[in-house]
Amino acid sequence: MPGFVVAQPLVFGLANGAAFGLVAIGLVLIYKSSRVFNFAAGEFVTLGAFGTYVGSSVVKLPYPLAMVVGVLFGTAAGLATERLVVRPLNDRPKVTVLVATAAVAIVLIPFELMIGKVKPFPARPAIHGVGVKILGVYVSPQQMLIMLALALSAIGLAWFFGRTDLGLATLATSQEPTASRLVGIRLNRISLLTWGTAGFLGGLAGVLLPPVTSNFTAGFGTTSVLISAFTAAVLGGMTSIPGAFVGGIVVGIVQAMAQFNVNKLPGLHDLPGPNSVAILVVLVGVLLVRPTGILGKEA
């Protein structure tokens, strides 16, 4: 095919996809433990980015500390959502909880808009420099950092679920809540832990993703990360952490390929927003053709 670019979208897609993967793992953790679709996840991401911005540009902390602040913002949002919104709705239909988590986004987005209006916030990378040339394309240190974060998170979670009692308790709760409670596992604490972890991962993605494009806007987590992360989670089967990991990368690459190449296809040179269309196609395609995802056991 003439004029198609492959290497550049591949690099972009890998880095973005790694961030989607982080958020998707958070979505999967919550879905596994409580069968809830968390539509507030996008705002955990925005708050992560926001925390870093406040830390570095407003309070003038050293950048690594500002990153920690960002991750803490995300984690706090996750914990607060669980305690204030999700737990009171424990015995309600899952759609109620879904709408309630969307309402969390409804509350948070205007706050961000109040502070920043619609203009983008600047976001500077953790490490400056042009990066390493791979396949003829420069991979920035920030992009490598995102991929490293995803890899470390995945390894950390694998260790947590495979080797620790708490991880085992979490898995048990997701399979048999009643039996788990009978053997003395505190469901509320497990739930808090899950949401905190999801907030942490979302915050981490929010800290790492914006510097790639050097800015972010209020609510960007909900408008541009959430649906990609959900698609990644669905692609991975919604209950599989490795699935979410792989799904994130796939969605990132598909979106970047669409962004770079769709306009070169005959008849589509004027199509705006090709990555949104790509997401819809992938999502509906997976749900219609293989609702169990790539690695999942149930839809």
Partner: peptide, 12 residues
């Protein structure tokens, strides 16, 4: 597409 998953389709 069943239940909650359909919410994702509408979002997309």
């Amino acid at each position: 597409v069943r239940g909650l998953y359909f919410a994702l389709v509408t979002l997309a």
